[in-house]
Design a protein around this nucleic acid. Sequence first.
DNA 1: ACATGCGCTGACCGACCGTTCAGTGCAAGC
DNA 2: GCTTGCACTGAACGGTCGGTCAGCGCATGT
Lengths: 206, 206
Amino acid sequence: MARPATRIASPESGDGAERMLQILSEAARLFATNGYDGTSMRDISEACGISKSLLYHHFTDKDEIFAKVTLGSTRELYHFVFDRLPADARPSERVRVFMTATGEYFQRYRWAWIASTTAFWNDPEQRRQKERMMWRDRYEGLIRTLIEEAIEAGEFRPLDVPLTGRLILSSLNWMHRWYKPEKGMAPPQIADAYCDMIFNGLVAPR
Amino acid sequence: MARPATRIASPESGDGAERMLQILSEAARLFATNGYDGTSMRDISEACGISKSLLYHHFTDKDEIFAKVTLGSTRELYHFVFDRLPADARPSERVRVFMTATGEYFQRYRWAWIASTTAFWNDPEQRRQKERMMWRDRYEGLIRTLIEEAIEAGEFRPLDVPLTGRLILSSLNWMHRWYKPEKGMAPPQIADAYCDMIFNGLVAPR
DNA sequence: ACATGCGCTGACCGACCGTTCAGTGCAAGC
DNA sequence: GCTTGCACTGAACGGTCGGTCAGCGCATGT
């Protein structure tokens, strides 16, 4: 059942689902900026303009908020990129789309992305991180598959596939450490420029 | 005045300077593993087998320990790489040495490196971070200069120099997220393999 | 023999952490 | 009009945090 329309007219207080999204949004920004341990439940509640207790009404604990942010981001990144891969394009073109689509995802969901990629990988709380790693592995598996196909098609040289995938992923994953949204190229453009450099190399043709 | 020789015979307790090095070493490992906020003074003291109070005998506070670890690492990285650049080699060869030397530094001072590169860049405590950023900027300025020289010498194509530098640095800086010291190639080899890929590109020659 | 200096400790501090809980106010359903 | 249910709050909990402090043991210089 949908909420009655009168609820929507209410100017100040939001619906429960909206509230959860607001919390996740603010939490993503704070986790990305200050890290997991550097972000307190009080920080999140104050950023949302609510009491600390309300966080526990919507989520069981801090870990769940963090898991929702990072798992959601990692899972959606995979589908976001996968869904944009053109089925009938040349393999190397699909690699390029992989990179630019990742740049686009970064542009749209910057805070959740940063929170996910900077999350410590060896967190003792492994149960919740397990699923995130699963999607991350699928994402990395995807780029490896694309590289292999490009090699088989003769477009790429014979390459160390895992290492090549890591080179591509490194360029994308490190972007958040220097990228400033207000200046310079947009992330998809940056990814495209990286793509040109990596595909063709730095060395001048002789 | 040097310590008298009798002091050295003491089997259990170390000299003050040794203690400081031990503390910095253990702190680097913990900061790298669990982050700044995830590492308590108690963690550091227990890792060293000493009391928490002793940390404050050698350092003023937690921030100073962290600053010593990260600033020391960043400053030494610059000199470590700079000192290894061959003066009379071709520009592109100097770029390669920049990368492999960075890989060698990573291999030797892994924990301090990780603590430095994962340190939050927008820490409110800016006074101490200022000097670290200075060395980091010099380090990045160095690779940009090398790239420019390679372009001027006609070895590299005309390139977006800052972006090219970031591509190279990204590949090196992201290594700690997937590198496992006990298996696979050593970091200098990895840097060299990256170098081959970035120089010559992925695309097969036609 | 005595004073000095230093590496070092255990007890302790206030602040803040994540988390809990009893209870409030208000809209919806009967 | 009354009950139900839920978004929401303020006070409080035990625990851990970074940091302090008085003082101990012992090698050293005189």
